[in-house]
Design a protein around this nucleic acid. Sequence first.
RNA 1: GGAGGAGUGCCCGAGUGGCUAAAGGGGGCGGACUGUAAAUCCGCUGGCUAUGCCUACGUUGGUUCGAAUCCAACCUCCUCCA
Length: 426
Amino acid sequence: MTLHLREAGKPAAKLRSEALQVLFERGLVNQCTDLTALDDHLAAGPVTVYAGFDATAQSLHVGHLMPLMALRWLQKLGHRPIVVLGGGTTQVGDPSFRNETRPLLEERQIAANMAGIRQSIERLVDMRGPDGALLVDNAEWLTEFKFLEFLRDYGSKFTVNRMLTFDSVRSRIEAQSPLTVLEFCYMMLQAVDFLELARRHDCTVQIGGSDQWGNIINGVELARKGDGLSLHGLTVPLLATASGAKMGKSAAGAVWLHPEHLSPFGFWQFWRNTADADVGRFLRLFTELPINEVDRLSALKGADLNEAKKVLATQVTAVVHGAEQARAALEQGEALFAGGREIADPTHTLPLARLSDGLGLLELLVAIGFAASNGEARRLVAGGGVRLNGRVIEDTHRRIKAGDLAADDRLALAVGKRRKALVSFS
RNA sequence: GGAGGAGUGCCCGAGUGGCUAAAGGGGGCGGACUGUAAAUCCGCUGGCUAUGCCUACGUUGGUUCGAAUCCAACCUCCUCCA
């Protein structure tokens, strides 16, 4: 193969395109196809770039933010993004780097998931105007194929020999875990997506997570063999903490982008709790602050770094939930952690009616997402980790009554030292 | 086609009839210490309308008072033979 890989973060010498300069500077490049060719391509004028997302859950999570940030930068620099929702591919399930088959989703569930994902995407890339980003569903073409037709037209362009060489499936095979033909063909479908987008929309670049490398390359190779097209691919790094752990999971589940799955304040808190060692890198990856400002903030030492974390949290929240929500979250953070709780908006609102018979403390913890189940809530309470209006409550049968509310109809609830909520009843 | 081995909780990995919601480690969460950081020490870590009930050791049945553990069939993987 004639593709050249670039290792993550290596400052590439004399790049011509502003696009690649920015992506490298931001730490958004893990590897790409022929660097010089991609650079020339991006420098030559506006291009169309795509990233795809399968509808495996009702919301995207922080891991998806990286390719989306890359799309945002490219859009700012005059290129046109296409976001592909995998209405078709989700029916197959990407096996890349998974050692088990994904449970197959029903079409209704996929449609619901796509609707949730779409809301986040619309905030992250600008779809307005004739030059705005495009949102397309790959079911549009994937469901149209007839089997024999597909095998003849595209199957002939792939060899099993080559397909087996990809790390994404080799690991599965070496793990001696069954890989069905259905899943194995996923890479063909994504390759066809790329080709289809190239034909329909003159899309020439695909961006994806590092686990998507194999799928992307398949598209590049298919387009070259089939249509003689020269396409390009680029992957963003895997989101990991400085301690090496995969990131995105927190107390009560993943760090979701959709506000119904994680409140904007909860999202803000996630970033506020970033480890010192990650602050600089996250500022570059997930905010759009100028690089010199990023450098200034990252240079802060010791407790002063907390200021940088607030900036990080507020900036990322603004990108995902909007400036209003970000400002509110910052205020809530200041109020809950530094005193003055009267000024801030509540982080959660529940109907007053729920208090009429007394609301179980455990139930409340689950309702605001501080515990995934009653059992988990019970353990938190029993372990002395839960405070109501500043006082530790260890009684798991405790019920909240109207009398627990402060004058403003709210109560302060905290789990541990990092998770706090201001719950309003109205 | 034949013979043998393997499949455990979020992950890795012990366990070969009751004492097993299943050792140990990782991860995660809580407590102490801090700066809402890291490191360290301690605790918790399936669900529920909860002194009990339900679900769980590849799948489905069976033996037994009782099964992750025994038997049968099936699925997937590995090794050897043809």
